[in-house]
């Protein structure tokens, strides 16, 4: 895990210090989906503040993320998050582990921003008063407090992605999983999300094709045909990934 000095604040976060991270362990996990092997006997542990995951389409990286919160059930092996089984204790795992999807239109559920942020909180049993506080807090945190009463379909793609992220953060998770967060964003919004990501105190595991986003990460993992084939520093793994796919 990396601690950082104030000079580089905003570049790499100090998550471990505030208890904002979890230990995620895959033990010999295989996942079969639609007759294909999506994950092939994967054994790996994640506890760093920042972990990047790269791989070609169909390599299994999205499956890896989804398995962490029990959206995908392994056909063999177990996944635990701070000791809790991702499938058996999915509810508790999802309480502390958020997932931001590629396309905000696939995850925004309510017609109005504030209502959507409240959705996850309601599901986890928060009181109305607490919900109001947390929704306001999450919107403030991302600088989008003014969007609170806006209608979703009037927002731009970048705004929607921030709303989706606010919905995840409102629950105060320890870990946020990102599934190609900048895939649908233009350059300006991509940079905005990059800045948000850098300043995030929560642990972040990021799947991305946008390799520059992962360049400062302490650890990057490369996945190919359902197997982890590289695991090391961003420089080493991204360099290899770029080279292999020239």
């Amino acid at each position: 895990m990396s601690d950082t000095t104030p000079e580089s604040a905003g570049r790499a976060p100090v998550s471990g210090a505030m208890g904002l991270s979890q230990t995620i362990v895959f033990s010999d996990v295989s996942v079969v989906r639609d007759g294909r092997i999506a994950l092939d006997r994967v054994s790996i542990g994640f506890e760093e503040a920042r972990i990047g995951i790269v791989g070609l389409n169909g390599s299994g990286k999205s499956t890896l993320l989804r398995a962490m919160i029990g959206l995908v059930k392994p056909s063999a092996g177990t996944i635990t998050v701070d000791g809790r089984d991702a499938v058996g204790e999915a509810r508790a795992v999802r309480r502390t582990t958020g997932l931001l999807f590629q396309n905000p239109d696939d995850q925004i559920v309510m017609p109005i921003v504030a209502e959507d942020l409240a959705f996850g909180l309601k599901n986890h049993g928060f009181s109305r008063a607490e919900i109001a506080v947390r929704v306001a807090g999450a919107l403030d945190r991302l600088g989008i407090a003014g969007l609170s009463e806006r209608r979703i379909h009037e927002l731009s793609g970048g705004e929607k992605q921030l709303v989706a992220l606010a919905g995840v953060l409102a629950l105060a998770p320890k870990t946020v999983l990102f599934d190609e967060p900048t895939a649908h964003l233009d350059l300006k919004n991509r940079n905005r999300l990059r800045d948000v990501l850098h300043a995030l105190p929560e642990q972040a595991i990021v799947v991305s094709h946008d390799l520059d986003l992962l360049a400062e990460f302490p650890r990057v993992v490369m996945i190919e045909a359902g197997r982890i084939v590289r695991d090391g520093s961003a420089e080493a793994v991204l360099g290899h990934y770029r080279g292999a796919n020239r």
Partner: peptide, 24 residues
């Protein structure tokens, strides 16, 4: 497909036995 995953990921359906309490 993705929408269903997102809804599940956000804790749906609510556990009605303990509303008002933080689940974790």
């Amino acid at each position: 497909e993705t929408l269903a995953d997102a809804i599940d990921a956000r804790g749906f359906p609510p556990d009605r036995s303990s509303s008002g309490r933080d689940q974790e």
